[in-house]
Design a protein around this nucleic acid. Structure first.
Length: 295
DNA sequence: ACATAGACCTGTTGGC
DNA sequence: TGCCAACAGGTCTATG
């Protein structure tokens, strides 16, 4: 489910339940998610007090006062749900998803916090994972070491984009999905950003570093990546294949997609073409054959 | 070093 | 209605 905007929205919701609270109970309903939980996962976490939640790429990181960090990745189908003690009914992070019903088959992790909130991690496909590490080791951690720039930071600029694309023969689509270049983009926002920039998904990435056209394309692409992520954040992220409760706020960026999931539908630019879908890198790419004809 | 295909896992959807 | 193939927001790992 989650790319950068969704993960960020979930982080903000989780922060309400986690920050300032400590782990009073940790339940693992199975020995692994995508990877096995490390030995002593529960014991190491118990009584640790969270002082802040941060995000890096698509990871949410709970940092504790004693210097322990818990990194959480949601994979494709991971979800967090907060049950507030007083409310008795589920409240979800960022009011993003529907009210919660217990799902014993896929509720894999349950955190009982000292403030009375209960946080459940649900993940049907189990592509998500959690891991503990000393906060001070983050820069050298295998998961984080090679990550590229945060796209909403100043680290991503037209020139940095062109520089990292220089000499690369791979298609723009694959280039943008590479977390070592830009950290946090996924299939949806790559498709949307390429559309906004008017660039063909299969154009050679290296062209961004070549000539006047390359420079102009880098400018458009950089601006498009930032604007599509920014717009998605303002909309509360995108909810695909997730029922959303009628009174839930946010999470409606999917209604603003220009290309993703719109195969066969007319281009929003009014060019008269129909959005096409094709497989690229084993994933679906959506694009307008007219508006994204050439770099 | 780089690029692509396959693997992981389960549920939903669309076509015959 | 039933069955099966294709597909799904991610990313790690083999292979060429």
């Amino acid at each position: 489910m989650p790319e950068l905007p969704e993960v960020e929205i979930i982080r903000r919701g989780l922060a309400l339940a986690m920050e300032g609270a400590s782990f009073e109970a940790v339940t693992l309903n199975r020995p692994d998610l995508r990877f096995p939980f490390e030995a002593n996962f529960v014991r190491r976490l118990l009584s640790e007090r969270v002082y802040r939640l941060t995000r890096r790429a698509k990871y949410i990181i709970a940092e504790t006062e004693s210097g322990l960090s818990l990194a959480m990745h949601l994979g494709m189908t991971g979800r967090f749900t907060i049950l507030h003690k007083a409310a008795g009914r589920a409240k979800t992070p960022g009011a993003f998803y529907h009210d919660y019903d217990a799902d014993p088959r896929h509720d894999h992790v349950v955190f009982g916090m000292s403030n009375g909130d209960v946080i459940r991690y649900n993940d049907v496909r189990r592509f998500g994972y959690m891991t503990l590490f000393p906060a001070r080791d983050m820069a050298e951690h295998p998961l984080f070491k090679a990550l590229g720039v945060e796209p909403l930071s100043d680290g991503l600029s037209p020139s940095s984009l062109a520089e990292s694309a220089s000499g690369k023969a791979q298609p723009l689509k694959a280039f943008l999905l590479d977390q070592r270049i830009i950290a946090g983009l996924g299939n949806i926002y790559v498709c949307e950003a390429l559309f906004r920039a008017g660039l063909p998904p299969n154009a050679e990435a290296g062209l961004l570093a070549k000539g006047k056209r390359g420079r102009a394309a880098s400018e458009r692409l950089c601006a498009s990546v930032k604007s599509v992520l920014g717009d998605a954040l303002l909309a509360g992220g995108s909810s695909i294949r997730d029922y959303r409760h009628a009174d839930g706020k946010g999470g409606n960026f999917q209604e603003k997609f220009d290309v993703y999931g719109r195969g066969g539908e007319p281009c929003h630019n009014g060019c008269g073409a129909l959005i096409e879908r094709k497989a690229q890198q084993g994933r679906s790419t959506f694009f307008c054959p007219i508006c994204q004809a050439k770099l």
